[in-house]
Amino acid sequence: MQILTRSIPLFITAVAGIVMILSAFFPYTSDWGKFAGQFFNILAAFAFVLGGGNLLKLHLKKISDQRPGWAYSGVVLVCFIVTLFVGLLKIGAYPNPTYPSVHFGGETQGSGSMFWWFYEYAFKPLTSTMFAMLAFYVASAAFRAFRAKNFEAILLLGTAFVVLLGRTFAGVLATGWIPPDSAFSGLRLENLSVYVMQVFNTAGTRAIMIGIALGIASTSMKILLGIDRSFLGSGD
């Protein structure tokens, strides 16, 4: 069993990773890399099936145990099954005018289909409102946490204000009295905002990106060499 659950997975990891690395260096192996990329996409799609299966398992258990809030699990399951059903069967989707005799030839998310309806009137408003609501939480958290106690905090706060104001009409109006062709035009909020983004923000972001990339490269090496086996759930 050790071979099936440890040795073979480690071997697969190493081979798949090395093939991907080689495909970047040797033109002969570039097709292998392309295949591996396509295999990865297919497996990622199967992972959605796994996710859906887990969702079903979890919520059916909650309903059968009648745990608190089990009715909401029923809502989850109904929405999941109905969306899946109308999407996979393309219920209400118009056929492709070039091939009108093939029902499944039409667009999955074509305007007018039931799947489109679920996307347009449930998925889109719900997800975008959830993200929009974060505006309140970000503002609330900033109000509680941001205190101009030291120089670093002042820099952070000041930059946030410059960037926010520089991209609004109020910011443009506030420094609109500085002539755009003068030597001090860089102090206009909209220009200052651009300068901050192009110079200071680029420098910081670049250093962070380089740091992240170094971290990813070293972690990848550890995984490919079998030093990091945490993804196998062994705890070693």
Partner: peptide, 19 residues
């Protein structure tokens, strides 16, 4: 609950038809 159910179904359908 609706967003959980609909988004799980949505991504499975997109995964099937697009991948």
């Amino acid at each position: 609950s609706v967003v959980v159910g609909v988004s799980a179904g949505y991504w499975m359908v997109v995964g099937f038809w697009d991948t």
